[in-house]
Amino acid sequence: MSSLLEVSGVFVSFDGFKAINNLSFSIDTGEMRAIIGPNGAGKTTFMDIVTGKTRPDEGKVVWGSDNVSLLKMSESQIARAGVGRKFQRPTVFEDQSVRENLAMALRNKRSPFSVLMYRKTHQDAARIDDLAEEIGLTADLKRRSGDLSHGQKQWLEIGMLLAQDPQLLLIDEPAAGMTVAERDHTTEILKQAAKTRAVVVVEHDMDFVRKLDCKVTVLHEGSVLAEGSLDHVTQNQDVIDVYLGR
């Protein structure tokens, strides 16, 4: 099995509203996947489940080659196990510099005591420089991240994800509110990232998904409606019904 993440038979409901309804699919190691779907299809809830923010009512979420269940782990444990998540709105620590943001995300020991005793090393400094170059923020390392532009914040957040060195990247609407040039840059960063790890992108924008050029999963009302290449799913009658209205 080369499956990295396997979600099977998952149900979640909020006060009677079924947000996820028998959701099952899997992501392979090193795969790039786009998840699309109309509002309320359960895309964000799916991410919440994988990252441990929401507990499903039933179902299994199995992770990695050792087949461990993510459902018994806390958010921070899941993150340390190798799942990185980028939120819809850019969430960087605005009060701190770009370097500090990246340093915090670097893959190091996370316990309070070892962080308290942490001394910067040459490798870490070099890694931060590499990451900054990758996301195009080399010149801005000392800037307060709150002063960055919207697009730069998105990249910084992706950079922080890369710094965590996760095996799976979950990315929620990375292109929202970006200029065309910024989008292209974002596409580049994501494609680059997908060379070494699995990347799951939740997106509304079909053009952006087309540029990613990867397998697409369509969610509707909490379960998988169709799966395959973008051209394949856009010709699927169910998908057309959902998107264009019955």
């Binding site: 990252t51 923010k53 993150a79 996370r110």
Partner: peptide
Amino acid sequence: RDDEARVRFLGYHV
């Protein structure tokens, strides 16, 4: 202080 959930998703046990 600024965003507890974000720190948690970075893998820190807040």
